[in-house]
């Protein structure tokens, strides 16, 4: 791991730790709070675009794939830490988990016309680091502020 990837938030980071129901108004409220924290921390527009996209993808993966076939009332645990040097987002669902490496590559010609399977690749493209726990029901996104 590079030194920059190992950056840790300061004790003064803007943080949240909530259990989120599958309710768009609640998701939007948390997303707005996160994006306001990211803006306060001085991240430029491309960073804000990346963080908003990855946050959305992580949440939708948790609710739609993580909890697939399960009770829609199940909540997802979301934590974030926003610091001027790094943003960390953790999303944990209550499902059995999955192996992210088994998701077919959506950029292959034969998969281009498939309507799903792009969430993980977008998170990986836009975040500095995307790590799943061993059971695959928890993802940690790390976004290290780019050099000016």
């Amino acid at each position: 791991m590079s030194a920059s990837n190992g950056a840790n938030p300061s004790p003064h980071a803007d943080t949240a730790n909530v259990s989120l129901p599958h309710d768009r108004d609640r998701i939007d409220a948390l997303q707005s709070a996160l994006m306001e924290a990211v803006e306060r921390a001085g991240y430029p527009k491309p960073s804000r675009f990346a963080i908003k996209l990855a946050f959305e993808e992580a949440l939708m993966n948790a609710f739609h794939h993580g909890h697939q076939g399960m009770d829609d009332d199940l909540e997802v645990r979301v934590e974030y830490e926003v610091d001027p040097s790094i943003v960390i987002i953790r999303v944990e669902d209550q499902g059995p988990g999955f192996n992210p490496d088994k998701v077919p590559d959506p950029t292959l010609d034969e998969n281009l016309a498939l309507p799903s399977g792009r969430g993980i690749m977008l998170m990986r493209a836009y975040m500095t680091e995307v790590a799943h726990n061993a059971s695959g029901n928890r993802v940690e996104l790390r976004y290290v502020r780019p050099e000016d």
Partner: peptide
């Protein structure tokens, strides 16, 4: 300003 992978999926379905 923003779209998600779910929106891309909907565009693919529309295209099909």
């Amino acid at each position: 300003d923003h779209l998600s992978s779910a929106a891309l999926g909907a565009l693919i379905t529309i295209n099909n």
